Amino acid sequence: MEKTQISGIQLYLILLGFLFGSSVILTPALGAGRDAWLAMILAGVAGILLMWVYTTIALLNPSKTLVEILRDKLGKVIGTILSVLYIWYFVHLAALVFRNFGEFICTTTLPETPVAVVMGLFALVLLYVVNSGIEVLGRLSELFVLILPTVVLIISIALITEHDFTAFLPVLEDGMAPVIQAAFVNLTFPFGEAVAFLMVFPHLNRMDNLKKVVISSTATSSALAIFVFARDLIALGSDLIARATFIPHLTSLLIPEFNVVPLVDINLLVGGGVKISVCIYAAAKGLSQVTGTHDYRSFSRAVITFCVVLSVWVYENLIEMFAWAEKLWPYYSIPFQFVIPLLLLLLSLRGKNKPSQPNTENTETESCTSDA
C-alpha cells in the first residue's frame, strides 16, 4: 500500500462522480418506461444495502485491498485466480465507459472525428491522473465533481417552464415486473460497479467514517439520478424519452437561446473521468499485488492502452452498446458484484467471530506447575 490517504469528503466526491458518471448520458432503469423513477428508488435502496456489504468487508479486513482479502480468505491459488478475474472486470468496465464517452462525444459534438481519436486523447489525460495517485484524484474531485449537481441545477432551472406532470401517468400501467427488472439493471449499473472501491477504501484516513461517507454518497447519487429522470420525463414526455438515445442531452436542447450542450459534455468528462480513473487504478493496483510489484504505475500505461483498444473492438455500433448495457451486463456482473462479495462477507464475519485457540504451551506449563 502506497502511503497516500484521502479524506472523507474526497471519498464522498470520488464515489459520487463514479456513480453518477455514465448516468449523465444513460438511464439504466429506462426499461420501466415512465415508471423508471420507481425502479430507481428500489435500486437506490438496494444499492445502499450493497454498499453496506462492501464497506463491512473493508472494515472487517482493515488496510487490505480486494486482492489481499481474496488471497487471505480463499487461499493463494483460488484468491489469485479470482483476483485476475476482477482485474479483467475492472479493465472491461473502464473500456465500456470509454466507449460510452466516445460515442456520446462523436454523436453530439464531434461527428466528423473518429471515436478512437476522442478516446485516445481522453486516455492521455486520465493516465496522468492515475499515475499521480489516488490522493490527486481526491483533490481533483474536490475541484470538479461539484460541477455535476451544479449543471443539473442550471439545466433544471432553465427548463422550469417546460413541464407536463401527466407524463408520470398512468403509474404501473404494465405492472411491477418491468419495474423490478429495471431496478435490477440499475442496481448493477452503477451501484454494483462500486466493488472497485474495495481497492480504494484502505486509503481513507479515518476508517470509522467509511460507512457514513459511502452510504451518504450513494444516497446523494441516487437522489440526483431520480431528479434528473423526473426532470427529463416532465420536459420531454414518456413517448419521446422511449425513442431518445441520450436523454439528458436531448433535454438540454429544449432550452431556448442558450446552448448548454457543452455543460453536458463537461459533466460526462468529469463523471466518466472519475469512473475510468478508479477502474484503471483498481486494475493496475491489482496487477501489482498479484505479481508482487511495488509500484502500480508500471502497469497503468499498459492497462489504459488495452482499455482503449478493447473499447474500440467491443461494440460494432451504438445500438449494440445499449443492448449490451441493458441485456447482458447485469447478468455478466452478478459473480463480481454479488456472489463473491457475499462470500467474502461471510468468511470475514466467521473469522471475526471465531474464538481464539488457547495457548497449548501455557496450558501445559500451568498444569505442570500445579502438579508440582
Rank of each mutant, 00 (worst) to 15 (best):
T4A: 12
Q5W: 08
I14F: 05
L15G: 00
S22P: 04
V24Q: 12
P28K: 09
L30H: 03
G44T: 15
T55W: 00
T56R: 03
K64I: 03
T65A: 09
L70Q: 01
K76G: 02
I81F: 00
L82E: 04
Y86I: 00
I87E: 05
W88E: 02
F90N: 07
H92M: 08
H92L: 07
L93M: 04
A94I: 02
V97A: 03
N100E: 14
E103V: 03
C106H: 12
C106A: 12
T107L: 10
T107S: 11
T107I: 05
P111Q: 13
E112H: 08
T113Q: 12
P114S: 03
V118W: 05
L121A: 11
V130E: 11
I134Q: 09
E135R: 06
V136T: 14
L137I: 14
S141I: 04
L143Q: 10
L146P: 03
V151T: 02
L153G: 10
I154M: 11
I155K: 15
S156K: 09
I160A: 15
T161E: 15
H163E: 10
F168S: 06
L172T: 14
E173F: 13
I180A: 10
Q181E: 15
F184G: 00
F184L: 11
P190C: 13
A194G: 04
M199T: 05
P202T: 14
N209A: 13
K212G: 01
K212D: 06
S217W: 14
T218K: 09
A219G: 11
S221G: 15
A223Y: 09
L224K: 07
A225W: 08
A230T: 05
R231G: 04
I234S: 05
A235C: 01
A242C: 04
A244K: 00
H249P: 08
L254W: 11
I255G: 06
F258L: 14
D265Q: 06
V274S: 02
A282N: 12
A284G: 03
K285W: 03
H294C: 10
S300C: 08
V303G: 07
T305P: 01
V308K: 09
V308Q: 08
V309L: 15
L310I: 02
S311C: 10
V314P: 00
N317I: 09
F322T: 10
A323V: 15
A325R: 01
E326W: 07
W329Y: 13
W329M: 10
P330E: 10
Y332E: 13
S333Y: 12
Q337P: 00
V339P: 03
V339Y: 07
P341E: 02
L344T: 07
L346K: 05
S348M: 07
K354M: 15
K354L: 11
P355A: 13
Q357N: 14
Q357C: 08
E361R: 13
E364K: 11
E366I: 12
C368A: 13
C368E: 12
C368P: 01
T369L: 14
T369N: 11
